[in-house]
Design a protein around this nucleic acid. Structure first.
Lengths: 153, 153
DNA sequence: CGTGAAATATGTATCGT
DNA sequence: ACGATACATATTTCACG
């Protein structure tokens, strides 16, 4: 199980993992070896999925975020699964949520411009005979994007 | 400007920044010092926003994702701004997209259970007199969550 | 879990193309 | 201007108490 120090380590790492083990150890009040042992254990136990660099989106030319709600013609398992698969495989789709209710999926799509978005719609949405309808919400600003989760304490 | 090697470095780091500079250098075909110089330059020029650990969501007890669409009573700047501020300040709100059309905001909300979600709704949605209506799409599964962006080449 | 020593990586300076 | 080699510094990692 996780004690307070484990949680502080994980919380620190999910906010900033660029610090050295020495710095991390100091911030949680442990010696570097003791801290490293915990980090390795937390890694091995699967608490840490991966470590990634978050790039500044604006630095690579213009881009747009779209929130896309998709309704399928049926709730059959294979229909849902087939759509999920095509969404997951699309590089434009950054996030895919399967939801309950009228709508079946919500996608967060990132594209450089509108033509790219149209191409995506053709390839993934219109091309699927089980796609009944979809609605696009064009984002004019991503006000918050946070990858951290609540680790308790 | 960014050449092919810079893009390969950034792409590698946004997929996995846990590797050492020595490994990174080898993967892009440079000597460690040459690679390090580029990484520092890319950092200083603001291409890398931050480095974070992505934690495995299931490891910290149950949780739910909600997609919440919010419509405000008016498009006045101060109304929008006030809502955005309250969304950004809420720890349950992991993402906030300001969108065009009928809906004004789309939130991605993460909570441990339904009572927590109700508490969030009371505190952030119902408490705001400019909140006209909102719709909650309950996610039964997050099929994809990807933080990478297209760096070209 | 902490201390100290060995292995490894990061960071700097210099040289060469 | 950029990369490679060589060297100095710092960190990681292991053995022991």
């Amino acid at each position: 199980m996780l004690d307070r120090i484990d949680r502080r380590i994980l919380d620190q790492l999910q906010r900033d993992c660029s610090l050295t083990n020495v710095q991390l150890a100091e911030s949680v009040g442990l010696s570097p070896p003791a801290c490293l042992k915990r980090v390795k254990r937390l890694n091995d136990q699967g608490y840490i999925d991966k470590k990634v660099a978050i790039l500044a989106p604006g630095s690579f030319g213009p881009y747009l975020h779209m929130v896309v709600e998709v309704e399928l013609t049926s709730d059959q398992r294979h229909v849902n699964h087939a759509f999920a698969k095509s969404a997951i495989e699309s590089k434009e789709v950054k996030q895919c949520y399967q939801v309950t209710g009228e709508v079946d999926f919500v996608l967060i799509v990132m594209v450089p411009d509108m033509p790219s978005y149209e191409a995506f719609c053709e390839r993934v949405l219109y091309a699927n005979p089980d796609m009944k309808k979809f609605r696009t919400l064009i984002s004019i600003r991503r006000q918050k994007f946070e990858t951290t989760i609540d680790v308790g304490e």
